[in-house]
Nucleic acid binder design. Sequence first.
DNA 1: GATGATTATTTTGTATACAAACTGAAAAGT
DNA 2: ACTTTTCAGTTTGTATACAAAATAATCATC
Lengths: 220, 220
Amino acid sequence: MPRDAAKSSETRQSAAQRIEQALMEEISAGELTPGQRLDEVGLATRFGASRTPVREALSRLTAQGVLVQGEKRGVFVAEYSREELSQIFEAMHEIEAACARIVAQRLNLLTRSDILTAQAACIEAAESGDRAAYLHANEAFHQAIYAATGNPYMAEIASEFRRRTGPFRAKKFAGREDLIVSAKSHQALIDDIFSEDSSTASQGMRAHMTASFMQALKAN
Amino acid sequence: MPRDAAKSSETRQSAAQRIEQALMEEISAGELTPGQRLDEVGLATRFGASRTPVREALSRLTAQGVLVQGEKRGVFVAEYSREELSQIFEAMHEIEAACARIVAQRLNLLTRSDILTAQAACIEAAESGDRAAYLHANEAFHQAIYAATGNPYMAEIASEFRRRTGPFRAKKFAGREDLIVSAKSHQALIDDIFSEDSSTASQGMRAHMTASFMQALKAN
DNA sequence: GATGATTATTTTGTATACAAACTGAAAAGT
DNA sequence: ACTTTTCAGTTTGTATACAAAATAATCATC
């Protein structure tokens, strides 16, 4: 995991990987709505490939929980009931808190700097009211925290949940005010993590996540 | 990921699923050692199938982190350095603690009973010194805790880590004494969880896991 | 008109074929 | 002896074909 991190530019990616990535992005962006069926042959022709790589991509995405194979035929974009959504958010809540806990124990100049830089971008995007930019900056902020754990496995799970909940969290930012509230919430979280006290850090993250989820659940 | 976790009646499983399951079991049991290469055509002939279902199985197992595709060619049973192992255990540590935390908030007569039943089986296996039986009972004990979270997503992640670390944890139980120590450790953990206090429960699990990992790391 | 049986159509899972990429070793050149 | 090159043998990724299963559609019967 740490070695292909440096190899940022994917050498030559297979068609299967390309399709997987494209589908993931479309799902995150909400272009493919939850519950929608994904047709193998349709995707194959759309991507100018055969069913085989499409099948592989769908299989991988299913394993990641982004897609589900319905009780009938076909593979569908994962669709969650309010209860399931609540459970997913609860799990994410705990994972994020665990990350904050670890980060607090492992802070150094570099990670502090990375987190602060990401937060600066959030503030800037929030103040300019640029919703798209804020979504991106917010993503980077959380990724900075995951990276600061120094634990790629923990980071991977956290990222996975973030991807999975993406379509449901995106809706929650309506206006400029929401962005500023979110950015302010980050600031409090940073203070808690930078205290270098595990309990304070995880509690801070819990508070941040709870606030975040309340908005998301209201919107879904 | 909510795989076929609670698939009540196993319908008719495809060859790909059969192969995936078989390989997973062999890996958990340590029959396939970490670092070993898995040959697609070899597996295909061995399972009396073609490369296609084998490929799908390997792909799924890779997505789960049980297998990795090496820097070179081929798919290998995941092999971890001491540092990577430490990171994986750290992540598992946090996940399990989170589970304990949730369980403490959500205890009821049923879940209490399930946990106690599983623990009784552990005690019995430990006292009779039956290593295989204890491994099984221990597994069931932890699964009972996962189930008691009432959160299938949390349970799935925890299970996934358990599967992943299986080959490395199995070694740690040498003699009857080890089993009894482990069972005793369970008892303390149960007390902490049954206190219904989140902090006490997660702390208790942390203690249990730390002890467990120390043994595992020593053995690897 | 509703219901059940029968037939067509789509869809999935698997097998097989094939080309490109990679590996490793023999051969040629220095 | 040591590179470098070439070439043969694997191995992977993708395409395509085909059979079995499931869904949809048609028709007959009441």
